[in-house]
Simulated scan of single mutants.
Amino acid sequence: MKNIYLTAGTINQVFDELEISFKGVLNSNNNEFNLTLDSDLIKGNIDAIPFINGITSIQANITFSDDIMLSIESFSKSSILFAYCTEGYIKHSFGVSGHKSTLRKHYSGVVTSTRSVNTILHFKKNTPVAFSLIKVETEDSANTINDSIISRLKHTFLNKQPNYSYQGIQNLKIAEKFIQFNAITEQGMIGLIMKKEIIQSIVTMEIDDNTDNLIKMSRAIKRSALNQINELKKMASFIKHYVFEGIYNKVIISKNRIIIK
């Protein structure tokens, strides 16, 4: 198991740190970043595009040769991180001892943090992983996203518990959007605009998925079912204990009768 720590900062600082930590080769052109990785520890690529409207898109396709715990310094309280897995799986936790949730293929996840707790990503050795991250800064002074979208983002994701993470349902529509994103070959401003529109549409889809009444109902049913299962487990344990006590008492009484006789 190897532990790697990344400090928060600008996209330039993050990629410079990734280049040093993973001994990669970094190329940046037209505000796009490409990090090629080919060391004994990690192989693959990490690409990123910071858009001017407070959104940063990161695509990673990597394989580690050892179990990795990647600790990322807590980000801004006004930031929302969307994650989508296209190959393999990733485990996430708040802090080293926090609960681990698993993001599997074609599932999306949402992470926000209002406390100074590092976000931990856990990778299994020799397991290829491909995933996309979309980071949205809702208080960016240069943010040009529609105000109604910013308002919906805050209401949907930032009014949660202090450290919030949620793994959504399997969403093939979002998978299709990422396929479209990766298929764009246009360069310069045209390609950038096309990619930005796709990323913003994914953000809108994430908002809809987390506010849809049917989704809320399904989550409520799932929570209710889990509560009932836990109650049944408690009841089964109680009955088992009660039956054991009854049998034990009968055995003791029988032994006492035999001794008296």
Score class of each variant (00 low, 15 high):
249 N>Q: 11
242 Y>R: 14
70 L>R: 12
46 I>Q: 04
136 V>F: 03
85 C>P: 01
61 N>L: 03
191 G>A: 06
208 D>A: 13
115 R>T: 11
138 T>C: 03
189 M>L: 12
77 K>I: 09
232 L>M: 09
61 N>R: 09
250 K>L: 10
11 I>M: 12
20 I>L: 08
187 Q>A: 13
125 K>W: 00
240 K>C: 00
117 V>L: 03
241 H>S: 03
194 M>H: 06
135 K>N: 05
200 Q>F: 01
36 T>V: 12
215 I>S: 02
69 M>A: 05
198 I>T: 08
20 I>T: 15
176 E>R: 13
170 Q>G: 00
10 T>L: 02
132 S>G: 00
214 L>R: 15
53 N>F: 01
34 N>Q: 13
184 I>A: 09
90 I>F: 04
200 Q>M: 04
100 K>M: 10
131 F>R: 05
23 K>N: 12
225 A>P: 01
66 D>S: 11
36 T>P: 00
187 Q>D: 06
48 A>N: 02
107 Y>T: 01
89 Y>Q: 11
36 T>Y: 13
188 G>S: 14
180 Q>T: 08
40 D>H: 10
80 I>W: 00
216 K>D: 04
111 V>F: 05
239 I>T: 10
158 L>G: 01
154 K>Q: 11
72 I>N: 14
23 K>L: 14
178 F>W: 07
85 C>R: 12
53 N>T: 03
7 T>H: 15
137 E>P: 06
172 L>T: 15
34 N>D: 06
216 K>M: 02
33 F>W: 09
8 A>Y: 03
184 I>R: 12
141 S>M: 09
17 E>I: 08
188 G>W: 00
124 K>F: 10
157 F>P: 01
170 Q>A: 05
212 D>Q: 09
105 K>M: 09
22 F>L: 15
254 S>Q: 11
91 K>E: 07
158 L>M: 13
